[in-house]
Nucleic acid binder design. Structure first.
Lengths: 144, 144
DNA sequence: CTTAGTGCAAAACCTTTGCAACTCT
DNA sequence: AGAGTTGCAAAGGTTTTGCACTAAG
């Protein structure tokens, strides 16, 4: 998936150093690629693995990995930042459907949203770099 | 705009009381209807007016006004909640274009986005109650 | 060796809460 | 009178920062 040599290359470009801590945190995101992990989540997993990595390092590493575009920072509205692996190329960004009852997060792709956003970019005169679309509602199971 | 009798009606429905504090906070949103105010912003304005209203009351009032659907709670990604007046009826929700350089926030309506979201609701089996669309980029002035 | 990175604890923020005093209805 | 409301200060939760120590290039 993410190979270490590629990661080292990204780091070297900006004079950053490869450390065990950084490698370990990135590996967690590979192992839990389907989840949206907060700093505290990552720290919890690290403690289970008795890694000795501190919480401050987790925060600093997450910020770094997002800057390198290996992770994507998400704000899912629960008062803490979350991160997920960022696929290297994806033509259509995916969005998050959040169940207000059970908290489950489902991802959706939508070419239609993408088109609507492109239209706004055109009309508004802004150049749009990034966007976040969050949909809140009730999932199938919680709806009865 | 918002008339006080209407506000009192909403309060009475849920056994809430009309207080000077609540009236004052709501008036601020009428006065600054074009802005997206945080709790601290509101508190600052109140202090200028030497109102004696405490910060905790501001937080409680903002939450109350959002519950009554007079205000809308926004998460614009700057680490604090913001609020804006919620128009009584608007068929198409508006979204926020945030300039990453000067911080300016522009609002956009988009029927196309609305349609895309309706389609997702249909396909996903979720019932969508609310949504937030945030677009980050550079505004016309900051683009040269 | 030199510079960047780490861990810890403390600090910084934003927001919520406990409680006695107060104020609408 | 009685229930809801307020202000203050304290506590909570997440994220950042200062600093001495350690490790990577």
């Amino acid at each position: 998936m993410i190979d270490i040599a590629f990661f080292e290359g990204l780091l070297r470009e900006k004079q950053y150093k490869m450390t065990v801590q950084r490698k370990t945190v990135l590996e967690i995101f590979v192992d839990f690629s389907e989840r949206h992990l907060s700093a505290e989540d990552v720290y919890g997993i690290l403690r289970e693995r008795a890694s000795g990595i501190g919480l401050a390092t987790v925060y600093r590493t997450l910020e770094l990995l997002a800057e390198l575009e290996l992770l994507e920072k998400l704000d899912l509205g629960d008062g803490r930042n979350r991160y997920e692996m960022k696929p290297l190329k994806r033509s259509v960004r995916h969005h998050h459907l959040i169940c207000m009852s059970c908290g489950k997060i489902r991802e959706v792709d939508s070419a239609a949203i993408q088109r609507a956003l492109n239209a706004i970019e055109h009309e508004s005169g802004y150049s749009i770099i990034d966007h976040q679309v969050k949909l809140y509602g009730y999932c199938h199971e919680c709806r009865k």
